[in-house]
């Protein structure tokens, strides 16, 4: 076992893990953060998407020992300190961008990054840059609408601030 310290959602956690433990298993099984979902567990569905140093990556293909010292954000860390949902969470609710909800945490983590990267300038660009997140319920049109709303709101705020 290796003792490591992970920084998750701004908190430091010290845990003992096997070297084979993925970040996904460390989050869910060791830290009780079950918002990050296990889908395919080999990098094809996007359900386990988290942010590592602000970049969206797949927790199932990331070894926990390899991200010691890197800031990790999960779906549990998106809302404001007072519990106000992140604008992307609010947009998913408003646009009914889910059915069963299993892929939703990964969709939202991916979507937040998609907007931050500047890859949400059109519906086709949103579809391309969100293609790593599969939704077996087929909520794609509403997911695109939610991402577009947040991207447009961010653009309006950007103009207002200028």
């Amino acid at each position: 076992m290796n003792t490591i310290t992970l920084e998750v959602n701004g908190h430091l956690h010290t845990l003992a893990v096997d070297t084979r433990t993925t970040l996904l298993d460390a989050l869910r099984e060791h830290l009780g953060l079950t918002g990050t979902k296990v889908g395919c567990n080999h990098g094809t569905c996007g359900a386990c998407t988290v942010h590592i140093e602000g970049r969206r990556q797949l927790a199932c293909l990331t070894l926990a020992v390899a991200v010691e010292g890197r800031a990790i954000t999960t779906i549990e860390g998106l809302a404001a300190a007072d519990g106000t949902p992140h604008p992307m969470q609010a947009a998913f609710a408003e646009h009914d961008a889910l059915q069963c909800g299993y892929c939703t945490p990964g969709q939202i983590m991916s979507a937040v990054a998609c907007v931050a990267e500047g890859h949400a300038r059109s519906d086709s660009e949103i579809r391309e840059y969100m293609s790593g997140n599969l939704c077996r319920c087929g909520a794609y049109p509403n997911i695109v609408a939610a991402v577009r709303r947040v991207a447009e709101d961010a653009a309006v705020r950007h103009v207002a601030a200028a």
């Binding site: 998407t49 969206r56 998609c114 990267e117 890859h119 790593g132 997140n133």
Partner: peptide
């Protein structure tokens, strides 16, 4: 190639 999550890593 791949997806943005994979390309980031």
């Amino acid at each position: 190639a791949a997806s943005q999550q994979l390309r980031n890593a």
